[in-house]
Design a protein around this nucleic acid. Structure first.
Length: 451
DNA sequence: GATGGCCTAATTAGGACTTCCGGTGT
DNA sequence: CACACCGGAAGTCCTAATTAGGCCAT
């Protein structure tokens, strides 16, 4: 969501998507069991217009494409898919950023929580109260991460490094702005039924070992996401190889297209259909392909195009009218992959249009924090004594959360819900010159219908 | 006119790739 | 021969902190 918040249009796009796809979402939300793992992606598929395999087999391209395995057909598919990708507009979709990071990467809190805040809390609060002691990342390999010599010159580093999975407590977690790091992208694919195991799959998920079943498709998805139409596996592979040095990935010796995460988010969402291979103890047999349909190298690249709709739009700098400013650019910094839970998706339109006012110049703005967990609130109580000078991020977080608590408390009184976990809808406020302006419901309606 | 606050654009540094390349191995 | 893989080198893109300058109110 935050990635979308840089510009008004993006906000409207997101909002309109949410509304326009309500019916489809409801369909996918039929089963609570499905909600836990699959809703985000089904949700995304509905955004992208790509039908779900189970529910819309008539429209599903996968079925027809899977059968083709000849090299010629693959080539054709590659070309067609590439064309589709290049001709495709993706910004209308809700980004995965918005969808997933929230829960997928911060599961340890028990309640739903947004990752950016969690990180800020975890970084500092641990020193204060140790309230959030559970590690977010599971180190898969004891390999010592080589200390990268920090070549800092006069100014200190302002942009936090990529939140490498093996470094749990480090300032500035998660990608900023629209940035979705490659490793995050891969993790997302691994948690997406549409991509896993079709394009990428776990071969030993507990060890973090995965295989690029369709390296071309993954590379294309990555390239589309990065607005690099020429992206190929060779290029993406170079980026992956850089991850060796940084201790994010390891290469699995002797096995092609097989990599290993040095660490993984603690509560990764594993596609249920993908676990068989590993559970059957055949991680050595990494060359196998998904049981149901061995994908050809370029199979399903047509539906890949549709699938890509679910990824975040190109960086705003490529959009006309984009202006860089500190506040506007920092707004999407805490990319929010809020996974819409059953409650959020089943909310009434009125609830869905909840408008929140900006909370000033806090690093974490309210639209980045749709959910405040009970544990977060408890944590907040522990950090309330902080002063601005100390633990700056925590202090800002506390400021923000404090405001949110008050707001939520007021909201809770108006609802019948006894649930401690409160959900706040993403802000749908236009960003102008770095300021957020609250819109009326009428404005939002017009914005929604504009799409 | 001086001062201070606010805002914005420009500058700057650094991270994360991306691109290209030559080479090796399967 | 195709493909995967490796790693160096240079370049690009993006973000965010800093800085300078303009505007306005007092």
């Amino acid at each position: 969501m935050s990635a979308m918040l840089q510009q008004t249009e993006l906000i409207f796009e997101y909002a309109s998507d949410r509304v326009n796809n309500g019916l489809q979402l409801d369909e996918h939300l039929a089963s609570p069991a499905v909600i836990v793992e699959q809703v985000p992606h089904s949700h995304l598929l509905s955004y992208s217009g790509l039908a779900c395999e189970q529910t819309h087999t008539d429209d599903c391209l996968l079925t027809t494409v899977e059968g083709s395995e000849s090299g010629d057909e693959e080539t054709m598919e590659t070309l067609v898919a590439a064309e589709n990708l290049l001709n495709m507009d993706s910004p209308d979709s809700l980004s995965l950023d918005q969808q997933h990071y929230t829960q997928l990467y911060v599961p340890s809190l028990g309640d739903v929580i947004t990752s950016p805040v969690t990180h800020q809390l975890m970084v500092s609060v641990e020193d204060i109260v140790g309230a959030l002691s559970q590690p977010q990342w599971v180190t898969l390999q004891r390999e010592t991460v080589a200390e990268q010599p920090k070549k800092k010159r006069g100014k200190k580093s302002k942009r936090p490094e990529s939140p490498t999975p093996d470094i749990t407590f480090k300032r500035g977690k998660y990608s900023k702005g629209n940035t979705l790091y490659l490793w995050q992208f891969l993790i997302e694919l691994l948690q997406d039924r549409q991509a896993c195991p079709r394009y990428i799959k776990w071969t030993n998920r507990h060890a973090g070992i995965f295989k690029l079943v369709n390296s071309k498709a993954v590379a294309r998805l990555w390239g589309k996401h990065k607005n690099k139409p020429d992206m190929n596996y060779e290029t993406m592979g170079r980026a992956l190889r850089y991850y060796y040095q940084r201790g994010i990935l390891n290469k699995v010796e002797g096995q092609r297209l097989v990599y290993q995460f040095a660490s993984l988010p603690k509560d990764m969402v594993f596609i249920s259909g993908d676990e068989d291979q590993e559970d059957q103890g055949n991680h050595e047999d990494d060359e196998d392909v998904p049981e149901e349909s061995p994908p050809s190298s370029d199979q399903s690249l047509d539906d890949l195009a549709s699938y890509e709709h679910s990824f975040p739009p190109p960086p705003p700098s490529s959009r006309p009218g984009y202006q860089r400013s500190r506040q506007t650019s920092s707004s999407p910094a805490t990319a929010q992959w809020h996974q819409p839970g059953p409650q959020s998706e089943s909310r009434s339109p009125a609830q869905r249009r909840t408008v929140l006012r900006p909370l000033g110049c806090s690093l974490i703005q309210q639209q980045h924090l749709p959910i405040v967990s009970a544990e977060m609130l408890r944590t907040l109580q522990n950090v309330q004594s902080l002063q601005p000078g100390q633990h700056g991020s925590v202090f800002r977080t506390a400021q923000l959360l404090g405001s949110m608590c008050e707001r939520q408390a007021a909201t809770a009184e108006q609802t019948t819900s006894q649930i401690v976990t409160l959900q706040l809808q993403p802000v749908t406020c236009p960003v102008k010159q770095g300021k957020l302006e609250v819109e009326t419901e009428e404005d939002l309606d017009s914005g929604l219908t504009r799409e």
